[in-house]
């Protein structure tokens, strides 16, 4: 199986990396709850590292939900600092604490920093990453940003590595670019299962960069009670509804590959 070979290759690559960089202790990892994802991530989300989440402008809600889920799992009972630029609130709406509470986060442990621009947001995030009282720092930028370049991402990575605080970048309406991130995700909304009424958040997540493992694409569901991701519970219909009039061999998921 190609994916198994990929995974072996990645594990070896990771071993070489560790030997080369003298990284004595492996990264602490937090299992996300979705078996396939955890396998690809070698056990779970690496704590004390930088992770990037991208979403199109129309997927702002889904991307926010995914980051909130990651942040909840990375920070456990500790504080969460959410730095967002003012423009993000104008474009995709302000953070609503009632919604966060329903996802299982405790709004009493969330501190929101409203930064006027990307520069000050990144600077605040870098400072916050040195604070060991925090569990995770989310930096939310909107649109393409010249401020978040290789230097800035390196700075965040190092700060996260030193303190063990997890750094999450939420990039809405931005194109993924090379950075020092441990993982990079592309998120969009997925259909709710057809049988249920209004269900838990369903997310279609593509892991498009993984420093120590294979990439992949999964449907993840956020379980508000256990505060973990999980596989979609009931999934009787295919990802894309069958279109009546098409040839048998048409690639059903082709238009969806844009993100990958």
């Amino acid at each position: 199986m190609p994916s198994a070979r990929m995974s072996t290759l990645a594990r070896l690559q990771g071993a070489i990396d560790r030997l080369e960089h003298g990284l004595a202790e492996p990264l602490r990892r937090q299992p996300l709850g979705h078996a396939a994802v955890d396998a690809a991530l070698q056990g779970g989300l690496a704590l004390g590292a930088l992770h990037e989440v991208f979403g199109e402008g129309s997927a702002a809600g889904a991307a926010t939900g995914f980051v909130a889920g990651l942040a909840r799992q990375a920070s456990e009972q500790r504080f969460l600092l959410w730095v967002r630029v003012d423009f993000a609130a104008r474009e995709s709406g302000d953070l609503a604490m009632a919604g966060f509470a329903e996802l299982g986060l405790d709004p009493r442990r969330i501190v929101v920093v409203r930064a006027p621009d990307a520069d000050s947001a990144l600077r605040s995030a870098a400072d916050a990453l040195a604070c060991t009282g925090l569990g995770a720092v989310v930096t939310e930028l909107w649109g393409e940003s010249r401020a978040f370049d290789a230097v800035a991402s390196r700075k965040l990575s190092l700060a996260a590595q030193q303190s063990g605080v997890t750094a999450l970048m939420l990039r809405i309406a931005a194109t993924p670019q090379t950075s020092t991130a441990e993982t990079r995700w592309m998120v969009r909304a997925a259909h709710s299962p057809p049988v249920e009424g209004w269900g838990a958040p369903m997310l279609e997540t593509s892991l498009i960069r993984n420093r120590r493992g294979p990439t992949g694409r999964w449907i993840m569901e956020w379980n508000c009670d256990a505060c973990r991701f999980r596989e979609p519970q009931t999934h009787p219909r295919p990802l894309v509804a069958a279109v009546a009039d098409r040839s048998y061999r048409t690639a059903v998921a082709a238009p969806r590959r844009l993100a990958g």
């Binding site: 709406g93 302000d94 953070l95 609503a96 009632a98 919604g99």
Partner: peptide, 11 residues
């Protein structure tokens, strides 16, 4: 029950 309030609020 599943979330009944949105994560982001347009103001």
């Amino acid at each position: 029950e599943p979330p009944l309030r949105p994560l982001r609020l347009l103001q």
